[in-house]
Design a protein around this nucleic acid. Sequence first.
DNA 1: GACAAAAGTGTAGGGGATACACTATCTTTA
DNA 2: TAAAGATAGTGTATCCCCTACACTTTTGTC
Lengths: 234, 234
Amino acid sequence: MSIRNGTRALRAIDRHTVAADIVLFTIQDGSLKVLLVRRDRLPFRGRWSLPGGFVRTDESIDEAALRELQEETNIGNVYLEQLYTFGERDRDPRGRVVTVAYYALVHWQQFQVRGKPDGSAAWFAIKRLPELAFDHRRIIDYALERLRNKINYTTVGFQFLPRQFTLTELQRAYEVILEQRLDKRNFRKKMLQLGILKGTGQFNTNGRQRPARVYTFAEPKVIKLQEKGIIVPF
Amino acid sequence: MSIRNGTRALRAIDRHTVAADIVLFTIQDGSLKVLLVRRDRLPFRGRWSLPGGFVRTDESIDEAALRELQEETNIGNVYLEQLYTFGERDRDPRGRVVTVAYYALVHWQQFQVRGKPDGSAAWFAIKRLPELAFDHRRIIDYALERLRNKINYTTVGFQFLPRQFTLTELQRAYEVILEQRLDKRNFRKKMLQLGILKGTGQFNTNGRQRPARVYTFAEPKVIKLQEKGIIVPF
DNA sequence: GACAAAAGTGTAGGGGATACACTATCTTTA
DNA sequence: TAAAGATAGTGTATCCCCTACACTTTTGTC
């Protein structure tokens, strides 16, 4: 048996099932949440798991991830980035399943408006996850680590906000993700000097206090992040 | 057809072939090189490609990557880290092949001593790559990007050096990877104050000039890197 | 008009990154 | 053995970014 790269013919015995699972984050009620779906079949029937599913042979893995997300949550147009591929031998009792994990960020309203509220899918606070199917807990932990890293040197965090937002809202998002309070003056100084925010001239009068300036993310309509990330319209 | 996560049975029609390909870097003669192997079968017969091969169903992807590397280069004990999974539809003319790409770093002597010099594998300077099979060029570009990023906030760069080295050798490695000259005083200051180098008390008398102090990487025998990375004895 | 609530604003100090040039030590060679 | 060649090795001043820190402004409500 020749083993040099790719010189063996494609053999049925080496076939794997490939899945794409998505860790979909949002911020709701001041806490970071992930979307989970309830499994209605074996294995792990009744357990919560990440949205996702098998990659078909006629689509790329990215396409599969987007499709699954669309099917399970009705959410399109999200920031989606490949996370890591989990390929331990026994991670799926059904057989050889390799999972390409993605993570995605949405503003909570994106889901609440269009999602299905039938109990088969729900947001769970990251601090209070139920027991999960497969190795999904590990995948979430890893996604969380990536998110916390990346928020410090990219603008992924903006994905949690609507198009227009106040600086306080932005700061709250950062605080929730990083699990620490940030200094208001320093935060504002830094954000403003980055040059990626554009004031709209409008003021938010929701509260019963001094109205806050409303900003927009000033980068072009498309967010191109460092490293690999699917480019997504904002 | 139910599409909720994992509720479809494993179906043959969704089966993929999974490959692990490795971008193996080294520094030789003052330039950054990657190991390529020549394909002796279709498709792309005669073209150079990354070492790698199909993942078997009885091994994890990490295991497959290590095994392939071992088989093709006789190199074990390397720093190996998963890079990205490439799953475009038409990336392999034989059919649906998903590649989990890894990258690895070795000191050039590790290979030269034990590798096979029969012309089926060779080091290529990153600046002068031949035309490659599949999308391997893209994989290399991505690995290079990752390497250049990571060298700035981890100690991966040390993998290019033997156990004992001088500060000048270390600096040269960084310069080659980053493709820029570094200031000698600043580089030494920074490295020494990191506290990860230990002087051996020995001096290198190779050259025909003032002998240089010889250092060792002072971290424990095992290198645990940020993010996901296989832990490897140094 | 007083109070509650969040918005908005500036400065001083510390630490790390950068820029920059000369002396020390060894080998080789005349 | 002295000079030349080659690399090792060393310190300081400046700038910028990060941090710590508290009060005034503006609105709505009672």
